[in-house]
Each structure stands twice: as structure tokens, then as C-alpha cells.
Design a protein around this nucleic acid. Structure first.
Lengths: 346, 346
DNA sequence: GTGAAAGCGCTAACAA
DNA sequence: TTGTTAGCGCTTTCAC
């Protein structure tokens, strides 16, 4: 991109023009040589590449994107990178896109609709070749996403999808996850199973709850609203829930928490009150956080295949680039049995 | 960016030209109006903005970047987004850059020098306005980073910096962290303190070790090589280290592990062997992982100010944009005292 | 306060 | 196999 003139010591930008002049050929020949065009002789290609290197030529993607209409950049919008679920998915997305020579423009919405709209706008202005997004909790309307589709920019949603927006998406089957977790506790011999869930009306919340209820009913266990606790997503609420059940004298011997931190909070409170996990109460979480193997007892959980989800999101984008639009994909959650729910020793 | 012709139903791109034609003014006036140029009357500005909206005009950053030489994009290179330390830092970087209307091009090196070079190359080709990076463990030479500086692209390194490369950077004072952790254990009355560390020759490893040794000596405690265990970064090695000390009958009553997962492994092994933490052995980790408040006992640790580190990295870049190059910054680690090292009840 | 014109560095259609 | 030419959609200098 630059050569240092010996006289001025100033940096000069190097373009295909400069290479062409050096070799007394036209700059379009240089362009073709650099792009490995089949019509160019290998002798010319070699000469061009050598001088390109000598002059420290650095191609300009802006110019080529402007002209060709392809940026090889995908916009990725997530609520928050600090949530390990999302950073894991982005990891998967980046891995696959990188391997296909796509780059990734990252934007955090921070659960703000306003930010989300700003991000989509930036993506469109940047002429990204596609957008992979997980919507905010606030997102109720989706005009900003419709704009994307209208302009024929491939759009893929993951985890949190949008009812009514017809676009490929990938998420895990939260219903099945809730069912798996609950059925596992039942098979272990627990019968009065509490569910610690959230107040929000998110699919991931309602579906896990639905799975929980269906698993109980499928095993002829009545659903009791007293055993369903709704609050914020937090370890603290896990503790509170257990405290509340115990203080009210509501009997229970199993806990399915909608995510691992909450489950861990629950275990702590149980242990603090002298109740043994898993002997007296079995606990299972959701998300397969990395600390699950390290706590005592180790935490049973449901794995969400986060990296796989990212990989598939990327593939769904690549599919659209290849004009073969795949359907939306539902990943199977994976039951991970560890100490916290293992009453029946194997 | 597009208007739908009623006859053909085909999408047509909208440029400032189209707006200009509609209003019978020159396209340069439109450009100025959209950029809020002071020389344009507010009446014209309003007209322009209104029609821009009506025609669904979407500015093209590629064109403006190509012309102006500014992309408002910063390349961020990290080893792996799955490591919560890095995703946290990137979160901080994105937050600050976003607020200054910079976007973030993300690249994972996966600890591979080859990938790292490819990423820097992509950044340069994309004409990013700056690069913020944490180098791979493999990175020994740094020609690819020198290229960046030579082309006057602001470069900021974080956490893992490069000896000999003169560029602003931010990292935490690992020496002080090691010292703090060790001195804390000593103050709590532990005197035979083991250090579980790594084999690698990384600054973060050697500096924490140096802090550990200096803290011991400052308190008139002899450093014993038998109490320094070197292995891979892992919870498993934490367990092994404890097992090895116990099996060899080497007495100890404190453990400083170079990171939280290792510390947790150590606690597990101690508990499995019936040794009480913190009553018999005090343990402290490093990194302030989110599970630290949830395990039993809660884990004492050293906070690395990850988000702050990201914010500062972003600020160091912004400083260079403003041509005021700040020095490198060393963040103070923060001692977080929790249950695992609290022999003296307060 | 607005317009005309040049050009950023490439790609690609058309010639030769 | 290579060269010519016309843009992509903006920013920016110089006019008036």
C-alpha cells in the first residue's frame, strides 16, 4: 500500500497502477493477474505478484467492494457479548465464516431496540453481504428486519427468533430441553419437582416451562402452580425460590431451574439449610455453563450446543449466498447427567 | 437504497443523484445537506432529508470511505472468544467504540500465528482506522504488527503485549496481582503457601509467580520450589497438584492458583480428601470468573477489570485518532476476598 | 449558498 | 492473452 520514497521519506500509496507502470503493462492486466484470472499467462502473473510484493502492495477492499457489490462482510448482532451463550455462538459463527473468507462486523444491542435499529442501519450502510442476529428482549416490531429482507440481504436469526418474520433461523428445542430435564428427574425417582422460571414472555422461558409441564403429565404427576416460581434470571432468585418453598412448607424433592446460575443458587440455599443434594433434593439446570463440572455436587444440565448453533447460523447464511434457502433448524438439546440429580447411583 | 418501480417491481438503488434529480438541485448539495454542512440552508437540508427518507435512501459507507480515507471501523483481534476474559474485553471495547460511532471488525486468531497474520492482512485490506489486538501464545516475531505501524494505522495491544513493539497497550499488573493474592493469604495466617502455575513462558505466568515469591520474602517466608507446581492451565491440574502435594506428604496450608478454574479444582480435591477450606487450607484464584460467588466456599480471587481494560484499549485507540498518543497503561488488580481464604472471621 | 468536476482504487464488459 | 473504457457512490476543491 505504501512505498517509502528515499528522498522524501514520505509514505506513498501503492495501487495496481503503480505495479502496471513498473511493468509497462495495463493496470487491468495487473488486476486480473492478482485475481488469478485464467486468461493471464503464468509468466505475467508471476511478474505481477513479485512486484506487488516488492512495492508492498496492499489491495483495497473498499474499492473492490464498491465496484463489485460484494463486501465479504457479515453483520452479527447480539444482545451482549458478556453472556457466555452469545460469545460462544459468535465464536462458532466466526470460525465458519472465517474459513469461507468472510469477515464479521460485530454489534451489541445491549437489549435495546434503539441500538438494534442503529446496528441494522450501520450494517446496511456498510453493505454487508448478510446479517446474523439474535433479537433483543425489547424487540416487538420488526420493520428494521423487514427492511433487510426487502433489500435482498440474507438474514439469519438464532436462538431468539421473531414470530411472523419469514427467514431462516436456528434455535434449540427448548420444549424438548424442558421435557428432558424434567423427565430425567422423574426417572431418578423425584416426584415433587419445582420449576424456577422467569417472568419474561420469551420463547425460551415459556417453552421450557411447557416441556416441564408435559413431562410431569406424561408421568401422571399433577402440575402444581405452587411449585412454579417466577422471578428474574439470577442465582439470587434461585436461592430465594428455595427459601420461599421451605419457609412456606411446600414439600418438594426436585428442582429444574431454567438456567445454570439459578440452579447453582438453589443448590447453595439447599446446602445452607442442611438439605442434601442429590440425596434429598435433585437439581438440574440449563445451559451447560463451564463451572458445572467444578461445583460440588457437579451440576446436571441441558447442553444447548452453542458452538454448533453458531456454525449452523453461518451455514444458513452461506446457503443463501448459494441461493439455496434452507428451512429453519431446531437443534436437539442434550441432557448432561452429573452429580446434582443422581440419586440412583449407577 | 432501493425504490420499487411500480411497473417492474424490481429494486432500484437510490443514490444522492436520485435525491438531487427529484429536487432539481446538484448532487453535491445533497451530499452536503446529508452531512449537515454549515454552508447549506436549513430549508434545503430539510427538503433533502425528507426526500431521502421518502426514497428510502441508504448511504453507502463504502463509497464515502473510499473517497474520504476513513472507514470508522476498528479491527479487533483476539485469540478466542470462548474465553470469558476475551469476550469481556471485547464487550468493553465495543461499548466505547460504538458510542463513538466506530464499528468493530472481529477476528479470532485461535492462538495461531498464521491466522493472526491473515487477520492483520484482512484488516489492512479493509482499511480499518485502527487495530486493537491481543497476540497469540505463538507470536514470537512481529513483522506483521510493524507493518501496521509503518502504515500509520493506530495499534493498541491489550493483556498480552509484545516486548520491543513500541505501541500503546493496556494490561493488568500481574506482579501486583500475585503479590496481593499471596500477601492476603499470609495476613490470614497461612504460612506454607503453594503456588499452582503454568509451564508457559507468558508474562502473565511469570509475573504472578514473581509477585508470589516477593510477597513471601517480604513476610520472611522462604520460597520452596517444592510448593511451586507447573502444569497446564486447567481445573484438572489443580486437582493433580493437590493430590501430588498430599501424596508426597509436603505440608501446606495455603494455595494460590494462577486462575480460578485451577483454584476450583484444587478446592475440590481438598474437599474430596476431607480437608476443610478455608479452615485447614486457604485458597485463592485469579480472574474473578462469574462462578466464584456460587461455589462452596465462595472463591477468593483477583479481579482483572476486564471491561475496564476493553474500555481503555478503545480509549487508547481514540487518543491516537486525536493525535495524542498516551503511554501504555497498567491496571491495578483488585483483591476480592471471599470464603475460600477467610480463616479469620471478621 | 450552491454547482461543476475530479477522483478514491478497483471490476468487468467490450475490443483487439 | 492483454488493453481500453466506463463506472461503483461518494467527498472535496474550486468556482460563482
Amino acid at each position: 500500500m505504501y512505498i517509502v520514497s528515499t528522498r522524501t521519506r514520505k509514505l506513498k500509496k501503492v495501487t495496481i497502477q503503480d505495479i502496471a507502470e513498473r511493468l509497462n503493462i495495463s493496470f487491468s492486466t495487473v488486476a486480473r493477474a492478482l485475481n488469478d484470472h485464467p486468461a493471464i499467462s503464468s509468466a505475467t502473473k508471476k511478474k505481477v505478484r513479485d512486484t506487488a510484493q516488492k512495492l508492498h502492495y496492499q489491495p483495497n477492499k473498499l474499492a473492490s467492494s464498491l465496484r463489485s457489490g460484494k463486501t465479504h462482510v457479515v453483520g452479527v448482532m447480539i444482545p451482549n457479548l458478556q453472556v457466555s451463550f452469545f460469545s460462544s455462538v459468535v465464536h462458532g459463527i466466526e470460525k465458519v465464516l472465517n474459513a469461507h473468507n468472510y469477515n464479521l462486523l460485530l454489534f451489541q444491542s445491549n437489549e435495546s431496540l434503539h441500538q438494534e435499529i442503529k446496528g441494522i442501519d450501520t450494517f446496511m450502510a456498510s453493505r454487508v453481504d448478510g446479517i446474523i442476529a439474535s433479537i433483543t428482549k425489547e424487540t416487538s416490531h420488526f420493520e428494521h428486519y423487514l427492511k433487510v429482507s426487502k433489500r435482498n440481504v440474507p438474514l439469519v436469526l438464532f436462538d431468539r427468533t421473531l414470530e411472523g418474520l419469514d427467514t431462516p433461523s436456528v434455535r434449540i428445542d427448548d420444549y424438548k430441553g424442558g421435557y428432558l430435564a424434567t423427565a430425567h428427574l422423574i426417572r431418578q425417582g423425584y416426584t415433587r419437582i419445582a420449576h424456577i422460571t422467569a417472568e419474561q414472555d420469551l420463547t425460551i422461558v415459556t417453552e421450557r416451562l411447557r416441556g416441564y409441564k408435559d413431562a410431569l403429565q406424561a408421568h401422571q404427576i399433577a402440575v402444581s402452580e405452587k411449585l412454579i416460581l417466577r422471578g428474574p434470571f439470577s442465582a439470587e432468585f434461585g436461592k430465594q425460590s428455595i427459601a420461599s418453598l421451605l419457609d412456606q412448607g411446600i414439600p418438594f424433592d426436585g428442582v429444574f431451574a431454567l438456567e445454570d446460575f439459578t440452579a447453582l443458587g438453589a443448590i447453595q440455599e439447599l446446602q445452607d439449610r442442611g438439605i442434601k443434594v442429590p440425596d434429598q433434593v435433585g437439581v438440574i439446570g440449563f445451559a451447560n455453563e463451564s463451572f458445572g463440572t467444578l461445583v460440588n455436587p457437579t451440576l446436571s444440565t441441558i447442553d444447548q450446543q452453542t458452538i454448533r448453533m453458531g456454525e449452523i447460523a453461518a451455514e444458513l447464511f452461506l446457503d443463501q449466498e448459494g441461493h439455496s434457502k434452507r428451512e429453519s433448524i431446531m437443534l436437539d438439546p442434550i441432557l448432561i447427567v452429573r452429580g446434582s440429580s443422581l440419586k440412583i447411583k449407577l
